[in-house]
């Protein structure tokens, strides 16, 4: 039989372990039903108005002090490929041939989710959803695991892989430092000659978006993309064609990404509380009446 002292020691060891790791589950349980900061700002993007001039790309490049692009911002040859955001470009415009004559342009950048997947997957809490609605990033704590890039449902964060000493996640921060925190719209919205983008309180923009659809139901698809996707995003979109045809993931879930992980996280406290008792109990049963069980303690081969 196991000696009582050893048994207690075993329990203590398990307890310490459990205490160490149980913090992992606490905060996650609370998250998931967050409906967003009441005064969070957002942007409503009307795809039907965009002409693909790329001046938003140029404005972003200047505002964020990004390196010179390989091709000038007035070069339309970039539209031959579908581009994504990179460490040198926080926003890009892509061209979609949706019908014989109709062409649509779509600007992509961080959508600033209400419950961001990047934030919930980050093990050093490098991301913050500010009350103004921006998802910002703390370069000082980032370890470079790139889980945010894995988790982002829109494939937005890029990484400066080429920097040997200080590689960082590079993504749109809604011009938070230079504009948003003072109540000003981001550079790309400001520069747009077509008023493609409307800056405002997210709650107001949802209403505005639906009003526009109602006023012109023949023109728009009856959906405000981003109103519900992955728990809602600060950037929302109106389109004249199915969102699938202009590069959006039309089947994206409405629940925030963190809700996918809850099945597992919910299991954590159960393991931590039941396993120690279960397995020490099994030990007592399994080794009952077995002679010489603890003989091996005296230095022979295990």
């Amino acid at each position: 039989m196991i000696e009582r002292r050893d048994f207690l020691k075993g329990c203590l060891a398990c307890g310490v372990t459990a205490a160490t790791v149980s913090v992992a589950s606490g905060k996650a349980m609370a998250a998931g039903s967050f409906e967003g900061y009441p005064d969070a700002m957002g942007v409503l993007v009307d795809l039907t108005r965009c002409v693909g001039c790329r001046s938003c790309e140029a404005a972003c490049n200047a505002e964020q002090k990004l390196p010179e692009p390989d091709l000038a911002f007035d070069d339309t040859s970039v539209f031959s490929d579908k581009r994504r955001t990179t460490e040198k470009a926080y926003t890009v415009v892509n061209k979609y041939q949706v019908a014989d004559k109709e062409t649509l342009f779509r600007k992509i950048q961080c959508n600033h989710c209400t419950e961001p997947a990047c934030l919930s997957s980050c093990f050093v809490n490098a991301y913050t959803k500010t009350k103004e609605g921006a998802v910002i990033y703390n370069a000082k704590v980032c370890v470079g695991c790139r889980n945010c890039m894995i988790a982002c449902p829109f494939n937005i964060p890029a990484y400066s892989y080429s920097s040997p000493l200080n590689p960082l996640v590079k993504k749109c921060i809604f011009c938070y430092d230079t504009r948003l925190k003072d109540g000003k719209p981001p550079a790309c919205v400001d520069i747009c000659p077509q008023q493609v983008m409307t800056f405002g309180r997210r709650a107001d923009l949802i209403k505005l978006g639906h009003d526009r659809i109602q006023a012109n139901p023949a023109k728009y698809v009856d959906k405000l993309y981003g109103e519900k996707a992955v728990g809602g995003t600060s950037w929302m979109y109106l389109s004249s064609v199915d969102f699938d045809k202009v590069g959006f993931d039309g089947h994206i879930q409405n629940e925030p990404i963190i809700s996918n992980v809850k099945d597992f996280l919910g299991f954590v406290p159960m393991v931590l509380s039941i396993w120690p008792a279960l397995f020490t109990g099994v030990h007592l049963l399994a080794t009952k009446n077995k002679d010489g069980h603890h003989d091996h303690e005296e230095g022979d081969h295990q």
Binding site: A31, S120, C122, N125, V141, V143, C145, Y159, V268
Partner: peptide, 30 residues
């Protein structure tokens, strides 16, 4: 890791306890 010298950060500098990777980091270390 992009900055491997920051490996101890999830333990001592900045906690992101709602992340699964936070659990992995602590469990693998323990």
């Amino acid at each position: 890791l992009g900055q491997p010298w920051r490996l101890p950060y999830p333990m001592v500098v900045s906690w992101g306890p709602e992340a699964v990777l936070f659990l992995v980091a602590w469990h693998v270390a323990t």
